[in-house]
Design a protein around this nucleic acid. Structure first.
Lengths: 155, 155
DNA sequence: CCCCGTTCCCAGCGATTAACTCGGGTATAG
DNA sequence: CTATACCCGAGTTAATCGCTGGGAACGGGG
């Protein structure tokens, strides 16, 4: 899972859309662009991908705009980022086959590390829905069961 | 915390160093460059930062090279990445003061989200030492207490 | 039915940034 | 003295971000 500003913009825009959807009429990109201070053209680019990903539905013509395809509580942040940001290879192993780097030399000792990190990020972002974000129910999700005092200093 | 290829290369190189340190003589960058297939010049750039960060010690002259400044079990992955990759701002809020974006509009609803994500990554990478990586003790660190079935499909 | 504005839609472009290289310099062992 | 290996700064290439401009569908007024 890749983490870039593009994904962040997409989440911002989706949060704006979820927060301003009255149910009566769609929300135009122009509104979102003004509120979130993102260029309209860039938003269009992002929403094209979000539409292909099935996260939003578009309504054309005057009074048109975008709607969420599902309730905000069922849209996960991970889905949004996955829709706009192509996944990136976190290891140097050949594309597709993670088998090409096992057991030879010290080549890919870090393979498992990055894979596990990616999994951690995925789990976290999948556990947060769009509704959670606009309700500010994000903080305090650190699981207390691993709350060892890992707070030694590096200096 | 920023996640780029630079940080990954640094961790690869440090893992190589930790795995090939016999204790008798330092490890030269030329060796690491050959084993890890990273260009020598780029490695020098990385190790300059690692040295400034106090993670390695250098020995000049023939037979010289680098040593870990501490046992591999006391060097955390987070420290390595922090040493080579400048931290990046994950929100649009003005630099330094995260107070500039509270309560106005929908402006920074995502602020808490990115901050919490960064904290999650930090916690994970701080929980893994260089020794863990070369001993392959990385997988299976997902805390089982949050193992709800979050596996609904997005389609 | 026809015109017209709104809004989504799509392809390509410029500028910023990261990734990486190149050329030198300095300390040290033999 | 010389070869090895660290040290340092500037320069080059490639990718990505974010923007510009024109085209296509749709609703409303005449």
């Amino acid at each position: 899972m890749r983490l870039s500003t593009k994904g962040r913009y997409a989440v911002m825009a989706m949060a704006d859309l979820a927060g301003n959807e009255g149910g009566t009429r769609p929300v135009s990109l122009a509104e979102i662009a003004k509120r979130q201070e993102i260029s309209l053209s860039y938003l269009e680019q992002l929403f094209a991908k979000l539409r292909k990903g099935g996260l939003v539905r578009s309504v054309r013509g005057p009074g048109g705009g975008y709607r969420l395809s599902r309730p905000a509580s069922e849209l996960r942040i991970a889905d949004i980022i996955l829709a706009v940001d192509e996944p990136i290879a976190t290891t140097r192993c050949k594309t597709g086959s993670p088998l090409g780097c096992t057991g030879t030399t010290t080549r890919c000792v870090t393979h498992d590390l990055w894979e596990e990190l990616g999994r951690q990020i995925q789990v976290f972002l999948s556990s947060v829905s769009l509704a959670d974000v606009i309700e500010k129910r994000v903080l305090g999700r650190t699981r207390p069961c691993e709350a060892k005092s890992e707070a030694r200093e590096a200096a």
